[in-house]
Write a protein that binds this DNA or RNA. Sequence first.
DNA 1: AACCAACGGTTCAAAAAATGAACCAAGTAG
DNA 2: CTACTTGGTTCATTTTTTGAACCGTTGGTT
Lengths: 259, 259
Amino acid sequence: MGTVSKALSLLSYFSPDRSEIGLSDLTRLSGMNKATVYRLMAELQDSGFVEQGDGDRAYRLGPQALHLAALREASTPILSVSRRILRELSDETGETAHVSLGHDSWVQTLSHAYSPRHATKVTMEDAQTVTYHATSSGLAILAYADPSFVDAVLARPLKAHTSKTLVDPEVLRVKLREVRETGISNTLGSFELEVQSCAVPIFGADHKALGALAVAAPASRMSQAQQDTIRAALRRAGAALTHRIGGSPPSDYPQADAP
Amino acid sequence: MGTVSKALSLLSYFSPDRSEIGLSDLTRLSGMNKATVYRLMAELQDSGFVEQGDGDRAYRLGPQALHLAALREASTPILSVSRRILRELSDETGETAHVSLGHDSWVQTLSHAYSPRHATKVTMEDAQTVTYHATSSGLAILAYADPSFVDAVLARPLKAHTSKTLVDPEVLRVKLREVRETGISNTLGSFELEVQSCAVPIFGADHKALGALAVAAPASRMSQAQQDTIRAALRRAGAALTHRIGGSPPSDYPQADAP
DNA sequence: AACCAACGGTTCAAAAAATGAACCAAGTAG
DNA sequence: CTACTTGGTTCATTTTTTGAACCGTTGGTT
């Protein structure tokens, strides 16, 4: 592992719950030497990727993160475009809509929209990292990922988040085939009990899934009619988002006009 | 300059105009050895900060940028909060509003909002980098920055973007004192001719300016009444944004009830 | 006050990493 | 066919990183 990777891996210890980390904490978390962490963080700070608090000298993510994101958005405007789409999606379905990106070994939630229709709803946090195998978004992405990538994900130990989480690689492969038949993934209680979730993949210019658009609802509210509404809305929204970021689905992706 | 800084500096060659860069181009731009650039980019790619195109193998910024930004936003929601504030600001003034962040040696525009009121307006691009000395946003930030930082910025060669750009450090220091008296900076044609711009600083928890909120308008439309409207709106918007991101102005910052 | 632990930060010989000139292979324009 | 470009790779040399130990401060306990 090169020095650069080591430095960047330090950034991964930041999370919504842990937005500030001191030098000693970071040393413990990373298992690296304190001097090493110090120097690496100093370099990240010089580049604006982290900044230091004033009172305590804890590190937090710096403004350079926003700069890079703005730059990425200028060429692939997935965030700004998805915001409107999420709004519409949650209005239309009356449930929580969210968009996620697929990473090497996890899925990150990026943005979400709530509907005011119901008092009880599935709540989300942005910038969370979740697993591939236990979420509808993750399965939607996996279903349209490189086979070698699927192998890599399924080869790792798969955590059972709930009693309903699928953890058998072979069972998951069957599930992925099912997803490919409809173009929509569906999970019930596999990440959190009592939450049903549907997702469609978002495709990049290379016809591969780079993320997913999902709607999550309390299982108790998921009638067949509601399911149909959500799936239809998701199909439309997914196609729109894929198109707007300059992507295109693979030729075998089921069209919206399917039964 | 450490390896990490070198790697991260490669990211700075990306811009709105140049969202994809090939290995050879990057080698030329950075002046580093090709093998070095290759290895550094490979590491950045492993960490998800850049990704490679499929056809040509040009590099572009990766999804990790969005992840970091979402994380930063979770603790310091300057982007999401400013979006609404920019909207209101441009509605209220009928002109282009934008928010910028101060960096070590430049100012980056982050987000903007247009008003539909006039057909001619100042147009912007997000994620642009501009200079401190020639923009109202830059001056607003400098006026409330550490003296040592001001010295560093003014010690560099100052480019004259137009015939009206102030480039004399001493003249600029006088200008900064004027800004501190009112709490609002004002430029006329110093970055682009025929553009007048006003800006207020945004403060962090440390009472130092981390960015600025600005309104830019064609100089021809800038009556005294319009100026007053803009300055009042900016004052309110700046205070609101500073407050919403958990910051607070220094004790000597002029209050909104000033004449 | 004295003590102690934990904090951020620093030092320097030892160890590991980055470096860069040269080199492939593949594509392409003349 | 040749000449020149591209992305990618190799390996001896050099440069950087590394980590145990060490400072100076801070904040809590006895």
